[in-house]
Design a binder for these strands. Sequence first.
DNA 1: GTAGTCATGTAAGAGGTTACATGATTAG
DNA 2: CTAATCATGTAACCTCTTACATGACTAC
Lengths: 202, 202
Amino acid sequence: MSLRHALLAVLTAEPMTGYNLIRYFDGTVAYMWQAPHSQIYPELRRMEQDELVEVEVVPRGKRAEKRVYSLTGKGLAELRAWLEEPTLYPPERDPSRVRAAHFEFSSYAAARAQLRAHRAHYAAALATWEGMVDDLEARRVPLLDSRLRQRPRAEHEAIVEFKRFAFRGESAKARAEIDWAEEGLALLDRLEGEGVPFWGEG
Amino acid sequence: MSLRHALLAVLTAEPMTGYNLIRYFDGTVAYMWQAPHSQIYPELRRMEQDELVEVEVVPRGKRAEKRVYSLTGKGLAELRAWLEEPTLYPPERDPSRVRAAHFEFSSYAAARAQLRAHRAHYAAALATWEGMVDDLEARRVPLLDSRLRQRPRAEHEAIVEFKRFAFRGESAKARAEIDWAEEGLALLDRLEGEGVPFWGEG
DNA sequence: GTAGTCATGTAAGAGGTTACATGATTAG
DNA sequence: CTAATCATGTAACCTCTTACATGACTAC
C-alpha cells in the first residue's frame, strides 16, 4: 500500500485539499509513484476512516466547500513504521524489454523505431528529473519551504539531500536506459551491415 | 496486454503445456515480465477462444490428460503486430525511491538498512541476469535450440543477440541501482559525520 | 458570458496477488 | 510407499486504469 504512504509523505509538508495534494503529487512524488485522482480521493477517505488523516471542511465562496486534510499522530507513526519496513520489490514488468528480446519477429525498421522511442522517452524523463534536482537546489519546489519551516535548520540539509538523492536515482536509471537503446541501435547496425536477415526480412 | 504477448513469444519456440510454458517462462521471460500460474492458465484459455493458440488434448498415463498449446497463424500475426506497436511505458512506481525521498522521517540505522537491502536485492538480480547472458552464449538455455531449429542458420546470431541484449538491459539497470545505493550510503556517512540530525535523532 | 481553474467524486472493468484446492504420474 | 514433479484450475481481494460526471469560483 505504497500509495497511502506516498500521500502521508506529501501531507507532512502542510494540511491541504485533495486537489492541492494531487497537484503537488503530480509535480514531485508522481515521478516515483504515479496515481490518478480517481484513486487518490477514495484513498483519502479511507485514510480518514483509519484515522491517519483529519479533515476540516472549509467553505469556499458562497455555496461550495472543500475538504482540507492534515496528518494525525497516527498517520505520522504509520509513515515512520512504513519507512522501517523491509521494502517489497515489485515484480519486474517491462514491455520494452520483452519486445527487445523478440526483435527477430519484427524488422530492422520496426526495431529501430522501438529503440529510438525508448531513447526519446528516457531522454525526456532525464530532462525532467535533472530539472527537478536543479529546482531542489534552487529551492524552487512548491511546498519545500513549508516542509523545511517545520523542522529545525540543522535538518534542512538532510531533507533536501534525500530528495535530490531520490531524483538522482531516477536520472541514473534513465541514463542506463538511454545507453541501452544506443547499444541496441549499434547492434542493429552491425547485424544489418553483416547482412543478417530475420523474420521481417525472411 | 503484455502478458498475452509474452506467452505468444514463448510459444513460438514449440508447442507445450501450460505447465511447461510456465516453467520456461519462470526461467527466462519472467525476468522482464512476471506472472503467477493463476494468471497464466486462464489467459491461455482466453487466447484459445481468440484463436491465437490451438490446443491438443493429449492423454497422460492412464487417467490424466494434458493440454498442449501451439501458436496459430493468427497468434504469430498478433505477436508481430504487437512488436510494431509503439510501446506504452508503464507509470513509474518504485517504493524504494519513495522511501529514500523521505529518509528524514526515519533514522540513520533504518535508512542504511534500506540501502543495504537495495544493494543486496539488485546484486542478486545482477548475478542472475549475468548468468543468463552466459547461458545464452553457451546455448544452455532450455528451448533456445528448438527455437533456433525452426529458423534458418543465418538468423541464429540475431536471435541470440536480441536475447542477450534484453538481459544486458536488466543488468545495466541493476548496476545503476547498486551504484545508487552506494551513493546513498556515502551520503548517510557524510551527513552523520557532519552531525546532521533528523527526525529519528531529533 | 465564458474560459480556465478549483474541487470532488463514481463506476466499470482490466490486471494482478494470494490463498485455496485437487489429483495423477514417475522415480526411487 | 512416498516424495517430487507434472498438471490445472478457482476465488476472493486488491490495485489501477479509463471514462463518465458534476458544479462552483475567478479573472477577463
